[in-house]
Design a protein around this nucleic acid. Structure first.
Lengths: 329, 329
DNA sequence: TCGAGGTGTGAAAACGTTACCATATGATAA
DNA sequence: TTATCATATGGTAACGTTTTCACACCTCGA
């Protein structure tokens, strides 16, 4: 490992001078400059960000914590965050919690220990108060969280979304409706389920139940198989996200159950694939990329201009009608 | 920001003692220990990993660079890498290059500057020699790269895979075959294209062409629309990955072109969705999760037991036959 | 000729931590 | 009694940077 000292020695100058060359500040003679640059070149020297960070206490890095990168919604959010960050000279450290609270906590420690300048936490499981305590002086913003009055957040209204999805099933005549819920502890999953309850509560003659999923294909598949084995099986399913909804389609296909004739299906997220499956999936859309981008922008603004007021941005969910709930009459 | 000094002061001990408490080494009296722990608690003290890293030169962190987290293949690799890493006490910093060489380079600098102990680079665009130069003494392993004799690597044989996919189209009677290629600079895309050429070269009476895609849905969609507008349009398409293949399905659906009757289609990767689209997608499977996991394991073994011999692990691609190439006769 | 101010350079003190060495106390063995 | 050893703690030098201060040199105008 070559250090600034080695460079200084080879260039026959002090470390101060090398530092000045690296950071392009202070006076340094043309000749000296060239000598230093040449020395850095021959030694393949790269300044050590760890030591640098220790001194200047700036890292130009943002931390991004997501529950599951393999989920298209979250990876789109991540892309939005990253694009905005890079345009503003920040780099992004992405951490994947796999929906585990312990991993979330671990990565928060990691980020704080690495002195990220700000953090974006998507689908946080820990309470906002706890996060504030953990992150202490690191500004952060939540995405896809529950609305709350304590911290900055970007979210789409999952309560309304869940209600819309469910109401749509009811309006289409479904009367045995099942909700495949997201993982316990996911704020958006919780809100969607609440929306589901709100909708069915005001409906007449509707049998409902909720089974728990995990926002993953496999979990959704398992839930769907169990569900569709029942006699009589539900005639309306609201899956808490598209991955699970697509798993339902898969299971139904294999079991010879027709969608939408035998059972109608609504998903959530409107991932790209929702249009491509057969039958195409009715789903509640939320603008993942924009949400990420917005969160990133808000956080960066705060970093650049100091603390600001509490910022809340809400996106409106939108029901996309497709074949999986089309009436055949 | 509270430091070890603050803790020492509050607990009325020296920083050395606090350090001993934190790292659980050396002698420290029960009473002192408790006092220090209490002090850390009240101050909400978290050791600073930056400073720590500077001294002990170990970070227990791995760097993972992927071209596109939104691509299911890469996110599955990432999950594999991460699961293995965490089981071994490492945390993973994930970086997303968006297929841009500049970002890849930027993140390599970042990782090196942050003193990751090892790096896993997926679908590298830069040459291995360049990476060796850049990363210098940071051990690393390539995933989904070209086979080469210089660095450790885990890959599946994309050449054979590309050949298999193409041969399958030929065997099914396709005679106007188009390959939608992956992004320029992606090693696996390149190999698949070579496999394509090898297969068509040994075939008689086959018209071929190659158009370039980007491994993304949108790029594949655009390519597909252009392609299917031609008269006569191709009757066999080999898309370099499943995302683009699914985009082809989408485009074909919209244009009233039937798959497989009018045009047969093969993808690559066997992502979960490949089974769910209509028609289900014939594709070349590679075990993304296992590849990531293997790479991670290899790297960690090397880190723990010092330099080892050059390690190469090859996975065999496997053709999954589904409806998109089913003969209707 | 002198001082002011711009230019170029180096020494040394931070940053927050760990590791090593020194010192002190008490217990045990010769 | 004295030497040895385990236990407990503090002081201090690193780690690789940046930044501040100090000093030296040069040029220019009065």
């Amino acid at each position: 490992m070559t250090t600034i000292k080695d460079v200084a020695q080879l260039a026959r100058v002090s470390v101060s001078t090398v530092s000045r060359v690296i950071n392009q500040n202070g006076y340094v003679e043309r000749d000296t400059y060239n000598r230093v640059v040449a020395a850095m070149e021959t030694l393949n020297y790269k300044p050590n960000a760890v030591a640098r960070g220790l001194v200047i206490r700036k890292t130009a890095t943002l931390g991004l914590i997501v529950p599951d990168v393999a989920n298209p919604f979250f990876s789109d959010v991540a892309r939005g965050v990253e694009d905005e960050a890079i345009e503003n000279g920040y780099t992004v450290i992405l951490c994947n919690t796999d929906w585990q609270v312990t991993r979330e906590d671990m990565y928060i420690q990691l980020l704080r220990g690495r002195w990220v300048e700000g953090a974006i936490i998507v689908g946080n499981r820990a309470a906002p108060e706890f996060l504030m305590h953990q992150l202490e002086d690191v500004p952060f913003i939540l995405v896809d969280s529950r609305p709350n009055q304590i911290v900055n957040a970007v979210w789409s209204n999952n309560l309304v979304g869940g209600r819309m999805a469910t109401q749509h099933l009811i309006d289409n005549g479904c009367y045995r409706i099942v909700h495949i819920s997201g993982p316990e502890g996911s704020p958006s999953a919780l809100a969607r389920r609440e929306g589901f309850y709100q909708a069915v509560l005001s409906a007449r003659n509707v049998q409902v139940s909720v089974v728990s999923g995990d926002f993953r294909f496999d979990g959704g598949y398992q839930a769907a198989v169990d569900l569709l084995k029942c006699r009589p099986h539900p005639n309306g399913i609201f899956a808490a996200n598209d991955m699970m909804a697509i798993a339902v389609i898969q299971a139904a296909n294999e079991m010879g159950i027709r969608i939408p004739e035998d059972v109608m299906l609504v998903g959530y997220d409107d991932i790209t694939m929702a249009r491509c499956v057969y039958p195409s999936l009715t789903t509640v859309a939320q603008p993942a990329y924009d949400m990420g981008r917005t969160a990133s922008k808000l956080l960066i603004t705060q970093l650049k201009h100091g603390v600001s007021d509490l910022q809340h941005v809400e996106f409106k969910p939108e029901l996309k009608l497709r074949k999986s709930t089309e009436r055949m009459s």
